[in-house]
Write a protein that binds this DNA or RNA. Sequence first.
DNA 1: ATGAAAGCGCTAACAC
DNA 2: GTGTTAGCGCTTTCAT
Lengths: 340, 340
Amino acid sequence: MAVSMHDVARHAGVSQRTVSNVVNGYAHVAPATRARVQASIEALHYRPNPIARRLRRGRTSTVTLALPSLHERYFADLAAAVVAEARLRELKVLVETTEGDREVELRILRGGDLLTDGVIMSAVALTAEDEKIRHPDYPLVLVGDRQLRSQIDHVGADNRRAAREAVLHLLDTGRRRIALLGVGHGPTRTFNLRRRGYTDALTRYKLPVDERLLIDSTWTRAGGEAAIARHLASDSPPFDAVFAMNDSAAFGAMRAVLRSGLKVPADVAIVGFDNIDEAHSSVPSLTSVGPAYADIARAALDLLQVQADSQGERQPEQRRVPFELHVRESSTPPSRKSRA
Amino acid sequence: MAVSMHDVARHAGVSQRTVSNVVNGYAHVAPATRARVQASIEALHYRPNPIARRLRRGRTSTVTLALPSLHERYFADLAAAVVAEARLRELKVLVETTEGDREVELRILRGGDLLTDGVIMSAVALTAEDEKIRHPDYPLVLVGDRQLRSQIDHVGADNRRAAREAVLHLLDTGRRRIALLGVGHGPTRTFNLRRRGYTDALTRYKLPVDERLLIDSTWTRAGGEAAIARHLASDSPPFDAVFAMNDSAAFGAMRAVLRSGLKVPADVAIVGFDNIDEAHSSVPSLTSVGPAYADIARAALDLLQVQADSQGERQPEQRRVPFELHVRESSTPPSRKSRA
DNA sequence: ATGAAAGCGCTAACAC
DNA sequence: GTGTTAGCGCTTTCAT
């Protein structure tokens, strides 16, 4: 067995209590005593046993992060953010992968093994019905773009606001005829929110929505390219910017625009959604809105803390965190120099 | 407080010992007793306290995985593999990110907080000198391509064998004049191992090494492209395959080959190293060797177990795990149909 | 087959 | 300012 607090106490000729006081940096320890205890700690190479401490304190200072996988960049980045934010709060993070397996998600909903102080989960297989089996006292926060759950705290990104910011960026840099690419496809809820953000921005500038600039297209590269090419070849009204529902469609649009002989961003600015890797490596690089991972992590850990502090008589909360707009070459104002 | 084993014992009218036996599935419990205890467990919604169990058992059944970051795909994939393999062994994984900070790595070397049963670390800032401060009894395994450490168990990938497999694949599919791209650059040790693998393969086929096919180049896209373009434009002997020291150089090579009017893979097969994302999305997709994450995870957890079981009188071990060859379009034999 | 009880290493309430 | 000590909830030795 390793050396315990008791051993140190004996070695220093004090009580265990005093050793504990020294180790935990409590006040009211005579300097001489403290020094003696410190010496014994070093002499014996004493290290406090964190498990005993956890048992005694009744808290683990650890949270579980349950994700479908770590192979997708989105989840890996989210995990990185949670680990970083947890570190600031002196918390550890236990990572579990669910592989999107409903059974695994259900087990976590029931409290898993109760090993940590709570769980942050990105659930993909749970249904609204499943909520009922949730462990009543075990802190749990859901993250991600899934449907709102009525009874469980949830952190999601603010699609409407993100779209508004993206479009405002285009308006702020002088664009006035902004096409919305990806209409009629994608997850309905998500699309509606983003379209509303598009409208919000135009309204802010007192501009009407021109229905002819709402371009029907799947959220794919091929779909975006075909739709934009078709638009450009037709007698539809021209645009000086494209706001695409995701980056794939945006890249398709970029290709169609360039092939038509127009320049990006000089003639047409392009903004995408999701901020995929390619967005910053493409030529020109693509302006895009992406999740603000640090904000998500912070909100999730905050909610866990709130649950731990409350005695159960709370109403569940939905926290919307903003996306981040990454301005790149595809929308750099024509008047400015494009960045390297 | 939550309901404890003691509560269940009282409720069922048995001793705590019997409840423990039931919970842990021990034999020698009368069926009737077991049923009664089970009923009480359910009635009271009893869940064993894992922290108390860990304290008592003296094991946490948890390992720490310390990585520089989770943003790089390599580390995220490694983490995914460790989590998956740990799950099979009924172990939990605590993830920490070091940000490549030497102080953080040193703290882990000293045993960190001793919270888990051991650490798997991908160290990037430690020097050979640092080894000395290692905690003597705390299981630690280093993973990655760093220099061999004499006193700490280490899991690394087998560069020589990987290169040999890659070149054998080219030879097996009929290539006979295989250029080695990236000579004179990159990490010396890594380069030497991979070149040796190249030679091994040729030797196996009783082919001589043609010095003129050892092409000097940085391990970058631009470097690879320039070097191959130069070679093709000169009167240097032609090749029917290129084995590049990494995928970036391989993509450069691919571009140079295509621009010269030659076809990939019909005229020239190309194989890279690292298996980066782009390798499977490019057109044509790139054959490449990459780390076998599952093998790394398995070896690392095995070593941790070995250390836990041994009483310190072991010699440190270096485990070399194989890379995996991902055959894609850039080296698909001309005789076969290229896959979609 | 089951009970009684010690004790893992720590924190903190209670003394003085 | 420091000592004494009772648990936190569990596993497990020693009984019977």
